[in-house]
Design a protein around this nucleic acid. Structure first.
Ligand SMILES: [Zn+2]
Ligand SMILES: [Zn+2]
Ligand SMILES: [Zn+2]
Ligand SMILES: [Zn+2]
Lengths: 134, 134
DNA sequence: TAACAAACGTTATATTATAACAAATTAAGG
DNA sequence: CCTTAATTTGTTATAATATAACGTTTGTTA
């Protein structure tokens, strides 16, 4: 019996912990600078860890920012269906967990009857804080 | 009375015509190579044209591909609400024009009651062709 | 322990995008 | 027509993001 084991490797743990501690999405090279004293010296080491972490759903990539954020949805382990809200002013990013939305999108059929297994949605607007300050 | 005029400049026209002729999304540097004989020599000239064309809604950027595609929705001039289907196999990209979907997303409220003015949605799956060939 | 897969370390390089600055062109108003 | 402001252009250099290629090490499984 081959048991698939999801123990994170050393570099993966280091990168994940940095991302989890962060208040917002982190860029790859900013992660790199943050982990150099922990022995990670090259971009590729970061990118490889990021790739794996995305694959197993621990983090997501915010495409419009080329930045990486920890997943807050414990049930989002496959990371196929993602939705985020992004503040245009303060750049705050939040993962949207909304069952109706995810059901709607997972069941969406386009005009030709085609369905899709995977999606990424990014909403842009002003977060509550920034809205008040206006 | 100041009339806002949206005549495209020379470089903007060149870049747009290349993108409109293309069968799929084009990358910035591929556009550059395609227009060098027409006098556009530097990346920045391409990126500036792209920026303007996006702003006025003539093209969209496919974020997951860092590539640019012509807008097929004549009523999408502000380019705030975009949705695409992307084939994971042949990389075919199609802009989704679906009133229900766009209404649903434009009216979407997150769990905190927040609404968003702008969104970008990218669906991934297999296009009809690729589904048949499997 | 042999064999395989995954992760690592390292160097170099590819790809994508913007900064900075000066010149040329275009729109609008008097 | 002339002036002024705004936009666009051309150019060089460089920043920021990401991957290729290679050999080594570590971990897992049989
Ligand atoms: Zn998630
Ligand atoms: Zn904000
Ligand atoms: Zn469009
Ligand atoms: Zn396809």
């Amino acid at each position: 019996m081959t048991q698939k084991q999801e123990q994170l490797s050393k570099n993966q743990q280091i990168v994940l912990s940095i991302i989890e501690k962060a208040k917002g999405p982190l860029k790859a090279y900013s992660i790199l600078y943050n982990v150099q004293r922990r022995g990670i010296k090259a971009p590729l080491q970061v990118y490889r860890a990021l790739e794996k972490l995305i694959e197993i759903g621990k983090i997501h990539k915010i495409k419009s920012k080329n930045a990486f954020i920890a997943c807050k949805n414990s049930d989002c382990e496959i990371s196929k269906a993602t939705a985020f809200s992004i503040c245009n002013n303060c750049e705050h990013v939040k993962e949207i967990k909304n069952t109706k939305l995810s059901k709607y999108l997972s069941n969406f059929e386009d005009n030709s009857g085609m369905k899709y297994k995977k999606y990424n949605l990014e909403f842009f607007g002003l977060c509550k804080n920034c809205k008040l300050k206006q």
